[in-house]
Structure formats: C-alpha cells, structure tokens
Amino acid sequence: MTQSKKNVEEVNIIIDEVFLDKSIKKHGNFLIPILQDIQESYRYLPEEYLIKVAEKLQIPLINVYGVATFYQSFGLVPKGEHIITVCLGTACYIRGGTNMVDVLTKELNIKPGETTKDKKFTLETVHCLGCCAISPVMVIDDKIYGNLTRAKLRKILNRFRENEEKLK
C-alpha cells in the first residue's frame, strides 16, 4: 500500500509544470477551476500542487489552503476510484436514505466520508440531489440510481465488484 502511494506522489512532482500551466492558461488565473482540474485528475489535492499553484498565481498559500479545505468537493486525502454519494435530503430521508447508508457502511466497512482500504470506494452523503421523485437516490460516478431498496443496492455494488474482477 505504502509503496503505491509513494509512487503516485513521485509522479505528481514530475507532471507538475505542463499540466498546471495548461490549466492556468485555460482558466485564466481563477483558483477554483484550477483546483477542480487537479482534483479531477488525481482524486485529491496534493500538498506540492497547492504550493505550486500559490506560487504561480502569486497569492498567499493560506488562501489556496483555505479554499481547498472550505469546499466539500475538494479533498486533501486521496479519494477512492468510485465515489458513492447517498442523498439524505428530506424526501430521501423519509423514504429510507439512512437505510441505504447503513447497508453501504456494512458492505464496505466504512463510515460516511471515508475511503475503503483498497482505495476503490468513497462513501459520501449530501443534502438533496434535486430528484426527490425517485427517492431514495444515490450517485456513483455521475450515474444516478433511483428508487433504491436494500436488495437493489447490493446488486449494484456486486456489479461494480464483478467488473473490477474482470478487469483484473
């Protein structure tokens, strides 16, 4: 585990410049889109990157760090390959959103906001995804799964796991 993590960090430092310059040019010195680019490609915001961004944009590091910790979509710890977001808004809560979280915590052995040890899944909760008609709702990798039941949820999870085994 530790070895693979170290490798990732080493790669970061090498890719740094070209990727960052492109993104800065593209977004014209706006901080949040640049951080979003980094988050998208690395699934977290590495420390070296934040320092580099602050240097390039000529803003204090604390401002970059403040923005990076303020928004929930940014993370300073690596997230999993698949991000599972369960809705716990009013409608989903009433129709059993918490049960879905319970099933996921048991199946994946993690609490909301945590990542599995093999870095495959990250479990998150949100307050409303805006589609209460098909509650309870969950999103995995930008794909929406509605009208969930416990059995349905287990099926979806198993499908993801099978796919990964095939890839192996």
Partner: peptide, 16 residues
Amino acid sequence: IGFVNRGNKLKITTPF
C-alpha cells in the same frame, strides 16, 4: 494564518 475548514470545524491555522 487564515481560516481553514468551515462550519463547526472552522479554525485559524497556518497552511497544512
């Protein structure tokens, strides 16, 4: 120094 995190986790620290 500056504000880090938000809501009930808000605190004032240096970067990292």
